[in-house]
Simulated scan of single mutants.
Amino acid sequence: MGDVAVDARSEHDGPEGGSASSDRPGTRTKKKQRPFWKELPILIGVALLLALLIKTFLVQAFSIPSDSMQNTLQRGDRVLVDKLTPWFGSEPERGEVIVFHDPSDWLKYEPTPQPNAAQKVLSFIGLMPSAEEKDLIKRVIGVGGDTVECKGTGPVKVNGKALVEPYVFAGNTACSAEEKGQFKIKVPKGHLWVMGDHRQNSADSRFHRDSPGGGMVPVDSVVGRAVVVAWPIDRWSTLPVADTFDQKGINTVAATAPGALALTGAVPLVWLRRRSRAGA
């Protein structure tokens, strides 16, 4: 009887004598990592996309080009502006420092910087303040329905309440004695009255009362609230609202709002009750 041919290869060997462990159930093959230089463009693309989304919906950097907000803000400061809150229907409040689009050619005589290509790209994705957009930064003094008044050198009054303004530039008076600095106005609904902290060096709502809109800033023109001075490092600080804007009686709407809200909620309940009785 002839001998039985025996395959001398181990049961762990593959058809060609190599290891067959990768073919066995429950085993894994180690995938070869892609070189870092191939991953880098993807990482950069994701980073740029995230930066663009953050700039569009969350936070944007702005540069301070003038002295109109001294000493709160200095020329050359970089501030971060909260753009998310307005998406939830929140409107600017008294005392907030806001960035807004030029409402009616306030900056028509101001030169517009010409950035280079790199600056345009960086400002587009929000890594650098925009140099082309004509935006302004001021403090909200009055909101829709408020009566704002300046008489003599001040103080500024909102709805008859005098403001204590510790942020006003040292040596300035709260109101300017010149003609345009003397006023008593009522802010229309959906608009804001804004003033710079450097009162004697700020072309704000006071000085645009003869312009279309009467110096008011439409709420729709607001980019967002400036919340932090981010640069230079030694100037890092938050931009809080002064306590004077919380004083009792300054808000003429607050006293009637709860009643109006209760009435609004009661109407549908009464209607449903009457309907159920009619169907009985």
Rank of each mutant, 00 (worst) to 15 (best):
Met1Pro: 12
Met1Asp: 14
Gly2Phe: 09
Ala8His: 14
Ser10Arg: 13
Gly14Thr: 01
Pro15Val: 01
Gly18Phe: 04
Ser19Arg: 06
Ser19Gln: 11
Ser22Asp: 10
Gly26Phe: 02
Thr27Gln: 03
Thr29Phe: 03
Gln33Pro: 15
Pro35Ala: 15
Pro35Gln: 15
Pro35Asp: 14
Phe36Cys: 06
Phe36Tyr: 12
Trp37His: 14
Leu40Tyr: 08
Ile42Gln: 15
Leu48Tyr: 05
Leu48Met: 13
Leu49Phe: 11
Lys55Asn: 15
Thr56Lys: 11
Gln60Trp: 01
Ser63His: 04
Ile64His: 00
Gly76Pro: 04
Val81Gly: 04
Asp82Gly: 13
Asp82Lys: 09
Trp87Lys: 15
Gly89Phe: 08
Gly89Trp: 08
Ser90Gly: 10
Glu91Met: 13
Val97Ile: 14
Val97Arg: 15
Ile98Glu: 14
Phe100Arg: 05
Glu110Pro: 05
Pro113Val: 07
Ile125Asn: 11
Gly126Ala: 12
Leu127Ala: 15
Ser130Asn: 14
Glu133Ile: 06
Asp135Asn: 09
Arg139Leu: 13
Val140Ser: 02
Thr153Lys: 00
Lys157Tyr: 03
Asn159Phe: 04
Lys161Leu: 02
Ala162Met: 02
Leu163Val: 07
Tyr167Gln: 12
Tyr167Arg: 15
Ala174Tyr: 02
Ala174Pro: 02
Ala177Met: 05
Lys180Ala: 14
Lys180Ile: 04
Gly181His: 14
Lys184Asp: 05
Lys189Trp: 02
Met195Ala: 10
Met195Arg: 08
His198Asn: 15
Ser202Thr: 00
Arg206Met: 07
Arg206Ala: 10
Arg206Asp: 14
Gly213Arg: 07
Ala226Tyr: 12
Val229Lys: 12
Val229Leu: 06
Ala230Lys: 10
Pro232Thr: 05
Val241Asp: 13
Val241His: 14
Asp246Trp: 01
Ile250Gly: 09
Ile250Ser: 04
Ala254Asn: 03
Thr256Met: 13
Thr256Lys: 11
Gly259Val: 05
Ala260Arg: 12
Ala266Val: 03
Ala266Trp: 08
Val267Thr: 01
Pro268Lys: 01
Leu269Pro: 01
Trp271Lys: 09
Arg274Trp: 06
Arg275Ala: 13
Ala278Trp: 11
Ala280Gly: 13
